[in-house]
């Protein structure tokens, strides 16, 4: 029987949540196409990640485990993943559209001599062919495609599928990570911002823009994010304040920054330029706080407050901190 294969992302022994979202998509495709779900994980010391994956609903977990794979190498991982995809008779290969997914899966698709569709928000199986939808032109349009080559390879936008949970224990197969000549390899990972919640994985994004007037006022954005408790919210920034040097580019949300789809997005002092909206329009709920009642951001926000961020945001921070403390 063929397998819908998920390539899991494990960093420092920890399974990254978007991997479980990919399992959800894989289970859907497996149901539609009559296949099983197998997960491939690469790394060194994968037992904890495999235990978690084993309870995701996947039927099988293949762990390519060993010191040679302690650090990510696009070429070495791709070669090992492709070998396992062939052994698993993969009809589809899915991975999250993360920094690692974007680096790894195109190479996997090339080695499998097949196509790839990236940053996918919906998958399907219709009339014997895999299908996918993805935003193009920074979300100004949606492209629907049908795979004409096998296997179907896709990266999935994070925060777009629910994380899989509640399966029975899957069979786990261990494969020794092959050593050898690495063309590129990660030498060091430097935590930026002291273990902050990654922007694209955060359940809440609090973003600030030029309406904050001065770089030092960004602290109120950080305070509101912190009010949600540890590991929940991340801060984002508009292009204007990144270009002004107030915030690093890694926090920029928009067409030339990051595209985020959190359940809850706060746009504070952000007018809503086309290129910013491209980066956050798929958030489930958008809250805008802006002094200008005519700001375009209010046309796409679910809830808006017209007012001075300097008054509204601290009050909101206090109210949310009280709710979080009460939970």
């Amino acid at each position: 029987m063929s397998n819908i294969v998920v390539v899991a992302e494990v960093r420092g022994g920890a399974l990254k949540r978007p991997s479980l979202e990919a399992v959800t998509a894989a289970l859907q495709l497996a149901g539609q196409s009559g296949a099983k779900v197998a997960v491939i994980a690469c790394g060194a010391g994968l037992d904890a990640a495999c235990a978690e994956l084993g309870k995701s609903g996947a039927h099988k977990v293949v762990a390519i485990d060993g010191p040679a794979f302690a650090n990510y190498s696009g070429d070495a991982y791709a070669k090992a993943v492709v070998e396992q995809c062939k052994a698993l008779a993969a009809s589809a290969v899915l991975m999250a559209h993360t920094a690692m997914g974007k680096d790894l899966l195109p190479r996997v698709s090339a080695l499998l001599d097949t196509g790839i569709v990236t940053d996918v928000v919906a998958v399907g199986f219709e009339g014997g062919a895999f299908t996918a939808k993805k935003p193009v032109f920074a979300g100004k349009a949606t492209l629907a495609v049908r795979a004409a080559k096998a296997p179907f390879v896709a990266t999935l936008r994070p925060n777009n599928f629910a994380a899989a949970a509640g399966g029975a224990g899957a069979e786990t197969q261990k494969v020794a990570a092959p050593g050898g000549n690495l063309l590129s390899v990660v030498k060091e990972i430097v935590a930026s911002g002291g273990g902050k919640t990654p922007l694209q994985e955060a359940k809440v994004v609090v973003a600030g823009g030029r309406g904050l007037k001065e770089a030092q006022h960004f602290k109120m954005i950080e305070d509101l994010a912190a009010a949600f408790g540890p590991g929940v919210a991340a801060v984002g920034a508009s292009r204007a304040i990144v270009d002004a040097g107030w915030r690093p580019h890694s926090e920029q949300v928009g067409q030339t920054g990051k595209v985020v789809s959190p359940p809850l997005y706060f746009a504070i002092g952000i007018s809503g330029a086309i290129q910013h909206i491209a980066g956050m329009r798929t958030a489930r709920t958008i809250v805008a706080i802006n002094q200008d009642a005519d700001a375009p951001i209010f046309k796409i926000a679910d809830f808006g407050i017209v007012g001075d961020a300097f008054e509204v945001v601290p009050a909101l921070t206090t109210a949310i901190a009280a709710i979080v403390a009460g939970k």
């Binding site: 569709v117 349009a141 949606t142 629907a144 049908r146 808006g304 017209v306 008054e311 509204v312």
Partner: peptide, 29 residues
């Protein structure tokens, strides 16, 4: 390898609601 089925414009987000003005609108939000 990927054939185009359709290129469409995304559905417009439903127009939102201004819940109020200033700090007094926080409880409503």
């Amino acid at each position: 390898a990927m054939e185009i089925v359709a290129l469409t414009l995304p559905p417009a987000r439903a127009a939102g609601k201004i819940v109020g003005t200033g700090v007094d609108a926080v409880p409503a939000l």
